[in-house]
Write a protein that binds this DNA or RNA. Structure first.
Lengths: 219, 219
DNA sequence: TAGATTGTTAATCGATTAACAATC
DNA sequence: TAGATTGTTAATCGATTAACAATC
């Protein structure tokens, strides 16, 4: 039952395995070998076997992996068998987009509150909750169990609200603000830095154009 | 001028350097040593020097790095000195959130079109463009230079539209759909798989809870 | 039993860190 | 010149791939 010390790289790959297995399940595929899966996913079979064996021997020699079983095991590893109550801080477009994303609820991520500063939004319904004011956040956290806080506020507010979240016992933050949160080590932060993702894309475009230019002038 | 063969890991870190240097610039900091920056960013000074030297000697012995200069050099490397016309496919909450994100335009990412299937949205203004129908996409691409296509459509539509984009010469896709696009190798894809990010967070929460439980029963 | 395919060890490859000579 | 700090080489560490014995 020791699942400690698994590398971040492996963990980042687990949701992708989960997605592919889910697709196979929908196609009623009963079993799959690491080799067949490796072709589908464009990774090495070795990596798949190595990754999965961090968590246990889910396969069987001469047979491969049972899709249903592996899917549910990875789901358990990812913590998708339990309910994760979550709140959204910031009811802007991004907050609304995440609130309305139905797949999350299917996987146990349940929206229990949405907060904003804009008084015009107070009481406005969003999915199955009503938008509340940020000033009511501390009281809400004292009364309601919340596991994940989703930060979709602008940079300056985000820092301040993060402190309030932490002071009120929140242990997991999904951070969309363009800052690195300074949190105690028992608080888990998962960053989604969209502008950094876009810049990476931009780099690759420039790089590609550069290579093309070189090739033209060199040949 | 050879900037080929730089590892993905380095490139993923560049936008973060850029962000920190931008902050230093706002604070009117003139120069910084790799050591001071390493403390701020919680990385090793060695990594900073190693990363930057992939692109050139931006520093000076005994002095450190000039913030303004390094900021602008990294900006150039990331391709932020040129304009990148982009379109959004899917005018839902997420598409709207990205359309309204003003920081992008500041960095040269210019929205030139938004497309959706929903006829009710036809002609509705979004930021500085009007929403068009997806059926008009091929013609639009023939008439307008577009560099980046942002895919915020649901899974099933995304695959189909990606093919249309590629057939019409799009070379860079920022993909928010929960699929891996199957694209020719000269098309650059940057994926933002939000549900996978959330699952990674969920894994870490479960892991933390598991460790705590163990500690309680072991001690 | 024979064939297939895993689990796992060993080999390779790449990325990070340490160290220090070069130099501002 | 002396002190500081880079650029860069060498050492270490970690992750990926290859290989194959174990076994279904």
């Amino acid at each position: 039952m020791e699942t400690k010390g698994i590398s971040k790289a492996v963990i980042k790959r687990l949701p992708r395995y989960y997605r592919y297995l889910g697709e196979l399940l929908e196609e009623n595929v009963e079993r799959i070998s690491s080799n067949d899966l490796s072709i589908k996913m464009k990774v090495t079979a070795s990596q798949i076997r190595q990754d999965l064996n961090n968590f246990g021997g889910f396969g069987q020699q001469g047979y491969g992996y049972n899709v249903q079983h592996l899917y549910s095991e990875i789901g358990k590893i990812l913590g998708l068998e339990t309910t994760h109550p979550m709140i959204i801080l910031g009811a802007g477009n991004l907050g609304q987009a995440l609130a309305n994303y139905s797949d999350f609820e299917k996987r146990g991520f349940k929206l229990v509150g949405v907060f904003d500063i804009n008084p015009d939004l107070e009481g406005v319904p969003l999915r199955n909750v009503k938008i509340q004011m940020l000033k009511d956040l501390p009281l809400f956290l004292k009364e309601t169990p919340v596991e994940i806080a989703i930060l979709t506020l602008p940079k300056n507010n985000a820092k301040e609200i993060a402190d309030i979240l932490i002071a009120n016992g929140i242990k997991a933050i999904w951070n969309f603000a363009h800052i690195d949160l300074d949190t105690p080590e028992d608080v888990i932060v998962e960053n989604v830095h969209l502008s950094e993702s876009l810049m990476t894309l931009s780099y690759n475009i420039s790089q590609y154009q550069q290579e093309h230019k070189d090739r033209r002038s060199n040949s």
